[in-house]
Design a protein around this nucleic acid. Structure first.
Lengths: 205, 205
DNA sequence: TTATTGACTTTTTCTTTCAAATTTTCAATT
DNA sequence: AATTGAAAATTTGAAAGAAAAAGTCAATAA
C-alpha cells in the first residue's frame, strides 16, 4: 500500500466515524477535514465528491463485515446454525452502522449511481454467502435446494422485508431501539427455522 | 338501510373512484362533491372530515375483499391451494386499489388514528384468514402448526416485506407495472411453497 | 326535524425569494 | 505529487406571501 492509499484509508477511517454516527446528511466535509487536521480541499484531491467518499466508506465496512462472517462460517456444518449465526451478525452490523445504511434504504427516490453500485454489491455478497450455505448443505444431503441463488434471494428478501413490516407496524422510522431490533431478529429466526425445515432433505421411499 | 345510510353509501362510492385513482392527496373534497352534484358542505354533514371519508372507503373495500376471499376459500381443502389463492387475490386487490393503500404504506410519519385503526383492521383480518387456514390444516394433520396466529404473522410479514424489497431493488416507488406485480407474486408463491413444506406434518417414526 | 347550501374562516400546501451553509474548483505554494 | 486558502457554484432552510383546500355555520328548503 503506497502513501496515497494509506492517506485514503485514513480519510475513510475518519469519515466512517462521522458517517456511522450522524449519517451522510448531518456530516460535512469540513468536519471530516478538521478531524484529520487537513484542509477540506485535500479531501477532494482524494475523492471526487462527497458521495464517492461515502461509497468508499460503505464498501470498506461491507468488506470487513463479509470477511468476518466468512470467518465465523468456516467451521459451521449444520445449515441452521450457519443461518442463525448469519442473522445475528446482520443484526450486529445493522445496529452498529444503522445511519450508514439508512440513507440508501429510505430515499429510493434519487440514489446516485455510485451508491447504487455499492449497495447492490453488498446485497450480492449476502446472497452469495447464503447460496454457499445452501450449496454446502445440498451436497451433504442435509437440504435439497434446486436453485441455491434464487432460494437465497427469496429468503433474504423475506427476511429483510420483515424488518420493514415490523418497523412500520411500530411506526418507528429512525433509530430503532435494541428491543425493536431484537424483536425483528426473533421473527427472522422463526422464519428461518420454518424455511429450512421446508428445504430439508427427505430420503425417497 | 335508511335514506341516510343510502346517501352515505353513495358518497363512499363516488369517493372510492377518486381515491382509488388519484390517492387521498390528489383528491379534493370539492371534486367529490362535484361528481355527485352536491355541495362540499354536505359531505361534511355525512363525514366529519376527509380522513373519515377515506377511512370509510378503505373499510368498505376491505370488507368486499374479505367476503370475496372467504367465499373462494370455502371449499378449498388443501392448504397450499388456499394460500396460493390468497396470494392471487391479494395481488388483484393491491393492483386495483394501489393508490388507496399506498398512502398508508409510505408516509408512516403521521397517520391519523382513524386510518391506523382501519389499516390495522385490514391487517388483522388477513392474519385471521391465514391462521384459519393453518388451523384447518392442523386438524386434518396436513400441517403441524403450534401457534397458528403467530405463524400467520410471520408468513404475512415475510410476504409483504418481499414486496418492499423487490420494488426497492427496481427503484420503483409508485405505480408498479403489471410485470413488477407479477414478479413479486411469483416470489411470494415460491416462498409460500417452501414455508408450507416446512410446516408439513411428519408422522412420528 | 333532517337535509342542503353558499359564503365565510382556518389550515395546509405551494411558490418565490434570499441569505447562509456546504460542496466543489482552482491557481498558487510546499 | 501533496497541500492549501480563497473564491465560485450549488444546495439548503427559513420567511413571506399567495393559492388551494379543508372545515364551519347560519340561513333555507323539504
Amino acid at each position: 500500500m503506497d502513501n496515497h492509499d494509506k492517506k485514503r484509508a485514513l480519510i475513510i477511517e475518519a469519515a466512517t466515524k462521522r458517517f456511522a454516527h450522524f449519517g451522510i446528511a448531518k456530516t460535512t466535509m469540513t468536519e471530516i477535514a478538521k478531524d484529520l487536521s487537513l484542509s477540506k480541499a485535500l479531501l477532494y484531491y482524494y475523492f471526487p465528491d462527497k458521495i464517492s467518499l461515502y461509497a468508499a466508506v460503505l464498501e470498506s465496512i461491507a468488506k470487513k463485515m463479509f470477511t468476518k462472517i466468512q470467518q465465523g462460517l468456516k467451521d459451521m456444518d449444520i445449515s441452521e446454525d450457519a443461518i442463525l449465526y448469519l442473522i445475528d451478525m446482520r443484526l450486529a452490523f445493522t445496529m452498529k452502522y444503522y445511519n450508514l445504511f439508512d440513507q440508501g434504504l429510505n430515499s429510493l427516490t434519487e440514489m446516485p449511481d455510485e451508491l447504487a453500485r455499492v449497495m447492490q454489491l453488498v446485497g450480492n455478497l449476502e446472497i452469495k454467502i447464503l447460496a454457499e450455505i445452501f450449496k454446502k448443505a445440498n451436497q451433504r444431503e442435509e437440504l435439497r435446494v434446486e436453485d441455491p441463488t434464487q432460494t437465497a434471494e427469496i429468503f433474504l428478501n423475506a427476511m429483510i422485508g420483515m424488518r420493514f413490516c415490523v418497523l412500520k407496524d411500530k411506526k418507528v422510522m429512525f433509530l430503532p431501539t435494541k428491543e425493536e431490533f431484537d424483536e425483528i431478529s426473533k421473527m427472522q429466526k422463526k422464519l428461518a427455522v420454518i424455511f429450512l425445515n421446508g428445504l430439508r432433505f427427505q430420503k425417497q421411499s
